[in-house]
Amino acid sequence: MKTHSSFFFTGATVLTLFGLLSGHWLMLPIAFLIAFCGMVVADREQLADMDARTAAMLLVLPSQHPLLPLDHFHGDELMFYQAGSPVYRVLQANGASWELVGEYGKVEDDSGCIRVYPGYLYRRRSTSVRQG
């Protein structure tokens, strides 16, 4: 039998009210512990309700690349918008250029890639020395 988070929150509220009204102050830490357990259960319920695509964008698994924010990059050649964010063909940061490979999960994963919000892989461009 699986316990729902509302059970913990209701129990914590009842214990808190009982402890305050009766003067049993030692019940308050127990009520806080039960409320904390309720928050953990509620968090797991929300994660279970997420679809796989949303969870992949928000959660980093050990085998995945971390999801980097687009704010740290300067983008060139805007291609389209995904999830309200621009997707560029080329990203630049700290003198390095990164070229779009494709959407994470739809292209072959490479250890030399970075993953940028909203979930696209970019591979570092090789720098060529220009003679002039």
Rank of each mutant, 00 (worst) to 15 (best):
Y120T: 00
A83F: 03
W98A: 12
R89T: 00
C113F: 00
G84P: 00
Q131E: 13
L100Y: 05
V90N: 07
W25H: 11
R125A: 10
L26R: 09
R124T: 02
R44W: 11
A31I: 12
H24N: 12
A48I: 04
V41R: 15
V129P: 08
H4Y: 10
F18N: 02
S111Y: 03
I30F: 15
A55M: 04
A56E: 07
Q46F: 09
G95E: 11
V129M: 08
L91A: 05
T16P: 02
Y81P: 00
D110K: 04
E103Q: 15
A56Y: 00
V40K: 12
R115M: 08
R125Y: 02
G23M: 10
R89F: 07
A52G: 04
V129W: 11
F73I: 06
R124P: 04
D110G: 02
R115Y: 05
Q131P: 06
F73L: 03
R115H: 06
T127N: 02
L21C: 08
T13L: 15
D76A: 09
C113Y: 06
Q92L: 07
V87L: 05
K106S: 10
Q92P: 06
M39R: 03
G105N: 14
L17D: 03
S5A: 08
I114S: 01
I114H: 00
F9H: 13
M39F: 09
T127E: 13
R44I: 01
L20M: 13
P29K: 13
R123S: 07
M57H: 08
G112T: 12
W25Y: 13
A52Y: 01
Y120E: 08
H74C: 07
S63P: 00
D43C: 09
P86M: 10
D51E: 01
P62A: 12
L91F: 00
D109L: 09
M57F: 11
S97L: 13
L67C: 10
R53Q: 13
M39T: 01
S85T: 12
D49L: 14
S22T: 15
H24W: 14
G23L: 06
Y122E: 07
S22Q: 07
G95T: 08
E99A: 13
G19Y: 01
Y117D: 05
C37E: 05
E45R: 11
V14L: 15
F8K: 02
K2L: 11
L26N: 12
V107S: 09
E108I: 08
G75M: 01
I34A: 12
S97Y: 15
